[in-house]
């Protein structure tokens, strides 16, 4: 039984990273109708940026801070201005194709410009392991889960409790009415892109010690996050959290109790079941769009 809880906990840590990335998916979708298939690469680029700053001698947290600012600028503002704004006018399809192209460009750019090899990445948390009621939990799992949950709830609180957050919700629910109410719609949408960049950079900090910094590290993560967002409900940001955690935990359980060979198929199986029986996702609703 202790093994079971151990698996659940380590699954929660992995799942919380899926959730962070999935939250980026849902936020962008709600605020601007954008589906970003380069989400995984939005995690990979900050990882390499942090490595670059660390190679200049900066400590991990300082590199994280600078990378965060760069991400907001490049992956938030730059992405919106250069790719989303010009393309969204022509509908969803060109934008989807463009983000797929962007993901390839980022992957191959890092591969060509940096290296195709994997690099180790320091962990924010120590390697120590502690035992609670017979369950061995590593400090890194605990830290990753805690950090991710704090960020996710922080974003939730910001959106629900602050004036800016409420304005963002208004934009997401009805852009025209929000404009009439005097809300600066463009700015609110920009904030969403900035939050997406923050989530991606945080995910990079947490996930890279395990995934290793590599040009293709984002492809699996981006895909799992996309599935998590759909399973939880694309129109609900709490759904992203739920979807991420469900995938993380069930992957681990299937890996241990069925066969490690089926581990990666679990997310897809869950995705199909959810799509068949509840197409809007577990927490999704058909009509209203909430942030």
């Amino acid at each position: 039984m202790t093994d079971f809880f151990q698996l659940v906990f380590s699954g929660l840590a992995t799942g919380s990273i899926y959730a962070l990335t999935a939250l980026g998916f849902t936020l962008l979708w709600q605020a601007s109708g954008t589906v970003n298939f380069a989400t995984g690469e939005f995690v990979m680029l900050p990882a390499f940026s942090m490595l670059a700053f660390m190679s200049l001698g900066l400590p991990l947290l300082a590199s994280f801070g600078i990378t965060m600012l760069l991400s907001i600028l490049v992956l938030g503002w730059g992405f919106k201005r250069v790719i989303v704004d010009p393309l969204i006018r022509h509908g969803m399809m060109p934008l989807i194709v463009a983000t797929i192209g962007l993901s390839m460009m980022m992957r191959n750019g890092v591969r060509a410009g940096y290296s195709a090899e994997a690099f180790s990445f320091p962990s924010l948390f120590s390697d120590s392991i502690f035992t609670i009621a017979g369950i061995r939990i590593s400090a890194s799992d605990f830290g990753t889960f805690g950090f991710a949950i704090v960020i996710i709830f922080g974003v939730q609180m910001f959106i629900q409790k602050t004036v800016t957050g409420r304005a963002m919700q208004a934009v997401a629910q009805n852009t025209e009415s929000a404009t009439v109410l005097g809300i600066n719609v463009k700015r609110m949408v920009l904030y969403t892109f900035a939050i997406n960049a923050i989530l991606a950079t945080t995910a990079a900090l947490l996930v890279t010690p395990v995934y290793l910094a590599k040009f293709d590290m984002g492809s699996g993560l981006g895909f799992k996050a996309f599935l998590a967002a759909i399973i939880g409900g694309f129109s609900n940001s709490r759904g992203a959290l739920l979807g991420g955690l469900i995938i993380g935990v069930s992957e681990n359980l299937a890996g241990a109790y069925v066969s490690p060979a089926y581990k990666d198929g679990v997310a897809l199986a869950l995705f199909m079941v959810v799509i068949l029986f509840k197409p809007t996702g577990l927490l999704g609703k058909t009509i209203e769009r909430k942030v």
């Binding site: 093994d3 992995t14 359980l253 490690p260 581990k263 990666d264």
Partner: peptide
């Protein structure tokens, strides 16, 4: 005798199986 996938990221289940 535990089989894993090329490019696999998370080995927690595989290692737990070995421990068990």
């Amino acid at each position: 005798d535990i089989s894993t996938d090329p490019g696999q990221i998370d080995f927690s289940a595989a290692i737990l199986k070995a421990k068990q």
